[in-house]
Design a protein around this nucleic acid. Structure first.
Length: 419
RNA sequence: GUGGGUGUAGUUCAGUGGUAGAGCGCUAGUUUGUGGUACUAGUUGUCGUGGGUUCAAAUCCCAUCAUCCACCCCA
């Protein structure tokens, strides 16, 4: 039995890669417009980085990490997300001594040990951005606008941006107490998972899909009603920015995101469908993270987008149907084996002049060379036979119209370069 | 981690007890230097794996693995 890729991994192969190139080139194009710099960090880190950075009450750390000991007995973890690594690199290279804010973007594989299903893999790919060093609420607004702009630029429809504020260390503890007080009398009616959450992270009970938990929590106190003045003011300004820039959004007062480090603004974007893996991306502010990881007290904010889900959504919405190949492709056919040397030299000459050119490498006869040219979507075919070698006048056939003209090498190059 | 579906050719699938088939794809042919259509031929299978029942298993039973889907959670 042939060896297969490990569970939860997938190959991006054949035509599939074109879709990824479309998405990736749009992303990097936008990053230039917003003036972000790419950062490339290792795909494995010390396990401790994620324990401290992501938080040990999260499911990611609790049950989804790929952790192993290396040959030097160090505990290593394949990165389950990008923010902790970026924060670590920022601190390690004293980013706080450079111009602030630091604006990073990254793109690459992440690893989480969970059961695979639609839109979920054990090795998956994220695009994300992180901005470190600014507490300005208009930055939150700009980032939300950027995130929406990415999806809109890709042509994705039915977008839904949900935002919330999850408070900060000065208002969240008080709110937690209020919430726990409220839940105390209903404790025994909560599902087992939520009973566990009660102590560790009661805010997460808002996320529970259990109907009874929903009923109980529905009338409970909301974090947005218990924000301190600073957080409340911050949230108002974020909303103001979104209105100013015409970004449509919904406030979801029950949204609590899964990572411990979030403060103030938290958000998530979905596209249309309900339920299963509808989330295309999400993020939030993490004003305590840099300090928590041993750096100075600098605020941060970022988001991550799941690229498999973007590609999947774009497929569902038919956005890859009309793939435009930017460059004309020409196939140089030989009439017989005697002409092969000439086709090789011609292909080389065409490539030197910036023309995408290929020739036969399957020893096919002319008719089958045409069939092949057709299958690879060649725009033109040049035919090389004995006459052409003598006359230096080449037949150029347009494969879309069927029209065939005769021209010199110089004319060929001109036409094929689209001059 | 929990629950459910499915494993037969490269791919999509048919075949429910008598040792394997179709469409698509791929390769080639339909004689002279021209594709997309049509016709023809060829092409690959330890029927996921191991065991059991049976004269006989792709088909029934058990186990196992893989895969897909949903939940938890997230991207």
């Amino acid at each position: 039995m042939a060896i297969k890729g490990p569970k939860g991994t997938h190959d991006i192969i054949f035509n599939e890669i074109n879709k990824w190139h479309i998405v990736e080139s749009k992303l990097t194009e936008l990053m230039q417009l917003y003036d972000y710099n790419e950062i490339r960090t290792p795909i494995f880190e010390s396990t401790e980085l994620f324990l401290r950075g992501v938080g040990d009450t999260t499911d990611i750390v609790d049950k989804e990490m790929y952790t192993f000991l290396d040959k030097g007995n160090r505990s290593i973890t394949l990165r389950p997300e990008g923010t902790a690594s970026v924060a670590r690199a920022f601190i390690e290279h004293s980013g706080f001594n450079e111009v602030l804010p630091s604006k990073f973007y990254y793109i690459g594989p992440m690893f989480r040990y969970s059961r695979p299903q639609t839109g979920r893999y054990r090795q998956f790919h994220q695009f994300g951005i992180e901005v470190i060093g600014s507490i300005n609420p208009y930055l939150d607004g700009e980032i939300l606008e950027l995130m929406m702009n990415i999806f809109i630029s890709l042509g994705i429809k039915n977008l839904k941006l949900e935002i919330n504020s999850v408070g900060c260390p000065s208002c969240r503890p008080l709110h937690k107490e209020k919430l726990k007080n409220y839940l105390k009398k209903n404790y025994s009616d909560l599902c087992p998972t939520c009973q566990g959450r009660y102590e560790k992270n009661p805010l997460r009970i808002f996320d529970c899909k259990n109907l009874q938990c929903q009923e109980i929590i529905n009338n409970g106190p909301l974090i947005t009603d218990n924000l301190c003045e600073e957080c409340d003011d911050h949230f108002k300004k974020v909303k103001y920015y979104l209105e100013m820039t015409n970004v449509e959004y919904l406030i979801n007062k029950k949204m609590v995101r899964g990572l411990d480090y979030y403060t103030k603004t938290a958000f998530e974007i979905t596209a249309g469908k309900e339920g299963a893996q509808s989330s295309l991306g999400g993020g939030g502010r993490y004003d305590g993270l840099i300090e928590e990881l041993g750096g100075p007290n600098l605020p941060g904010i970022g988001f991550a987008i799941g690229l498999e889900r973007v590609v999947l959504t774009m497929e569902e919405q038919g956005l890859f149907d009309k793939l435009d190949n930017k460059h004309d492709k020409v196939y140089v056919a030989n009439v017989s084996e005697n002409n092969i040397n000439t086709t090789i030299k011609l292909v080389q000459e065409l490539r030197k002049n910036g023309v995408v050119a290929i020739n036969d490498i399957m020893s096919r006869k002319l008719k089958n060379q045409f069939k092949y040219a057709n299958k690879i979507n060649a725009d033109y075919v040049i035919i090389i036979g004995d006459d052409e070698i003598v006359n230096h006048i080449y037949p150029l056939k347009n494969m879309n119209t069927g029209e065939q003209i005769y021209c010199s090498l110089d004319e060929l190059i001109k036409i094929l370069r689209g001059v």
